[in-house]
Amino acid sequence: MIFQNKKIIFLLKSFTLGGAEKQALNFAAYLQNELNCSIFIYSYIKTNESKLFYEECEKLGLNNLRLEKNPLSASGNFKYIKRRIKIFLLGIKLRKHNPDIIIPYLNPPSIIAVLCYKISGAKITFWHHRGADYYRGDYIEKIAVKKTPFFLANSIEGKKELESKFKIKKGYFLPNFSTVNKINTNNFLLKNKGIKGKVVLGMIAHFREEKLQIILIEVFSKLLQKNKNIHLVLVGDALDKKKFNEVKKYIFINNLKDSITILHNTKAEDVLPCLDIGVLISLKEGMPNTVMEYMGYSLPIVVTKHDGCVSLLGSNYKYFIDNKNEVDQLNKLEKLILEEKERKKIGEQNYMSLQNNFTIEKYINRLTVILNS
């Protein structure tokens, strides 16, 4: 299969702008604008965090968006039958596009895609695992796994997880591509936040269970005791309200509100140029879009050592951290805070690695090989 002039359905869980969705939208835009594909983007869960998603679609020229009712939702008796009927009806609805391929993002949309693609008339689909993902563990998931043509993961860790979880052999690893469009302007949200002249650390990640903003704040507060010339920026939406409130409470109790800025509904590119050091501390990642964005803005990065991060930064990268080793975190952050030359050197290395290895053209070539294998 080649992508030129194809009709393609993208199936997302919701119209929120996380890492998976940013990859999906940029992939869709490239297919539409460069390869003359017809693109249709579907979602089935309505949320209140959609502003940035729609702004991104407008910027990329994507306007065929459709929100459907959740076909995986069912109550009462005969839940499996009800779900299969809903998925069947969705497949019938998709037939009007005469699709060549359905591309899902995340595990639940993969279930739907696998069970409806033949009904829709699409020639192929696949299971698309994206890192910190959700497993249903129910009968409909088991049936979908058996019917899946092949499994795709955006990290080695994710591929291993799929193979272990589902006892499958036909899994592929396909790394993300860079979505960074580097902007050079002084008109950024942080310019009036009292951080001029300070070394700015930033963590761009939604507030969710697997993201460990609290660990970063604890380490930052200790660094602040020795160096007042630093500032921390946390960027992300409160997808987990409990987690978000814990972060706010910790900042308030420890009197850190003048040294830590929290931003919501904020585009990464509005913050990235203000950062000196990018940080991502987490329990689990696929191939994090955030790390690629840090690389695209020539930032040194202090990050938990997940397989996806190793794929991006290399096995010998010296600023990986252990979530449980506070001394290691302190030492590595402090070195970058104090040594501007080191920040610039590591940042440039990260930028060149991104440009050489993770373009969308290489992504499409790799996916084409997988689809044709």
Rank of each mutant, 00 (worst) to 15 (best):
I143H: 09
K167P: 01
P273A: 02
L17E: 02
S43E: 02
E361R: 15
L17T: 01
G194V: 06
I251R: 00
L106P: 03
F27M: 13
L283Y: 14
D258G: 07
E334C: 05
R136Q: 15
F3H: 03
L90I: 12
S43V: 04
T179I: 12
S50D: 11
E218K: 15
I215V: 14
E58F: 03
K362Y: 14
G308V: 08
G121S: 05
K284D: 10
F244D: 11
S282W: 08
A24D: 00
F320V: 04
L280G: 11
I156E: 10
H128F: 02
I87V: 12
I156A: 10
L312A: 10
D276W: 05
I85Y: 15
H128K: 04
R136G: 14
N77P: 07
Y80I: 15
V247D: 05
L367P: 02
Y294E: 11
K93R: 13
S178F: 12
L338F: 09
I253E: 15
D100V: 04
E56A: 13
L189G: 12
I262P: 02
H231A: 13
K362L: 14
T125I: 04
K211I: 07
K191A: 05
G18W: 06
L11S: 04
I111C: 06
W127I: 01
L189N: 10
H231E: 08
K165M: 02
G347D: 09
A24P: 03
K182A: 13
I230W: 06
L256S: 10
F177T: 07
I85K: 15
T185W: 10
V199Q: 04
Q32Y: 06
Y297R: 01
Y134G: 10
K228W: 13
V303S: 11
I39L: 07
E326Y: 11
H129V: 01
K222P: 03
F88Q: 07
L12N: 10
E293T: 09
L336R: 01
E285G: 07
E209W: 09
F220Q: 04
L65P: 07
T47F: 06
K318D: 15
I346N: 09
G202F: 02
